[in-house]
Computed example of a mutant assay.
Amino acid sequence: MSKLNPSPAVEFYDLVTRTHSEGGDALRSVLGDVDATAGPVLDVGAGTGRTVRIIADALPGARIIATEPDLVMRTVLTHQVAGDDDLRRRVTILPEPAQTMPLPDRLSAVVLFGVIGMLDREERMQLWDRLLPRLAPGAPVAVELLPISKPQQLPPMPYAKERIGDHLYEATLQGEPGDDDLMVLNSTWHITGGPGADRTVHGTSQWHTFGLEDLARETGMVAEQLTMQAGVLRAST
């Protein structure tokens, strides 16, 4: 799912990923056949480190390049990596966005979870031009998309529900069409239970809508849908 804007709802990012965990299972299945000796795994928009840990667990010994331009999430990512001796040896953190991140000559896999919809078609084409020549033979590109391929009105729906200590965190998400292929996503978080006053926090993000088959046409790769939101692109044989 799309990452929320840095403020003020970024504090709840990990609560969303906990609720929508099926993408993590899909990513593990994609990584199962990766030859990590062919090059590092690139995690674009690594957020607070959820996908970094999945990659590290699925591919022991693999080198990982984790890019995250948002300072708040990158701070949490750095904390997660620095506190784990194994990750400290294997994970390199970059602050650049997808459009300008430096890339190695070879990649054994690419993970684009919660980020590809932040790029318009021109930006995606520029990204593919940089990524595709660097993919090792058989290297997969794992992607996570909104489960809608064009802008539409989305009524409020439950988004996340988690309890931390005495506080209950509940969120709803609604969407409306923006310009061109954009969806505007609005989340509302209610934090209730003592101690302290109840809180309501609103977050807004934008997401370019398209489907996995659109990415297959852009890249010339073969697409496989794994869940409602997760899929994989592989070079055609």
Rank of each mutant, 00 (worst) to 15 (best):
K3Q: 15
S7M: 11
S7Y: 14
S7V: 15
P8G: 09
A9V: 12
V10H: 15
Y13A: 15
Y13C: 09
V16S: 11
T19V: 13
H20E: 07
D25G: 10
D25Y: 08
D25N: 08
D25Q: 13
A26Q: 09
L27S: 10
V30W: 01
G32V: 03
G32I: 00
D33F: 01
A38D: 06
V41R: 00
V41C: 03
G47M: 09
R50K: 08
A58L: 04
G61Q: 10
R63A: 14
I64N: 06
I65P: 00
T67M: 10
P69N: 09
M73Y: 04
L77V: 06
Q80D: 08
Q80F: 03
D85G: 05
D86P: 00
D86C: 05
L87H: 01
R90I: 10
R90E: 08
V91F: 12
T92F: 12
P97N: 13
P97R: 11
T100M: 10
T100R: 10
M101L: 15
P102M: 10
L107G: 13
A109S: 12
G114F: 05
V115H: 09
R121I: 14
R121N: 09
R124F: 07
M125S: 14
M125E: 14
L127R: 06
W128Y: 13
D129A: 15
L132H: 04
P133S: 09
A136L: 09
A142R: 01
I148W: 12
S149W: 02
Q152I: 08
Q153D: 10
P155Q: 04
M157P: 00
P158K: 06
P158H: 11
P158E: 08
Y159T: 03
D166Y: 00
L168D: 13
L173D: 01
Q174W: 02
D181Y: 04
D181K: 08
L182I: 10
L182P: 07
M183N: 01
V184R: 14
L185I: 06
L185D: 02
N186F: 01
N186T: 15
T188H: 08
H190Q: 12
T192K: 04
G193K: 09
P195M: 03
G196L: 05
Q206Y: 07
Q206S: 06
H208Q: 05
H208K: 02
T209E: 02
T209R: 03
A216N: 08
A216Q: 05
V222E: 13
E224M: 09
L226M: 15
M228K: 15
G231A: 05
T237G: 09
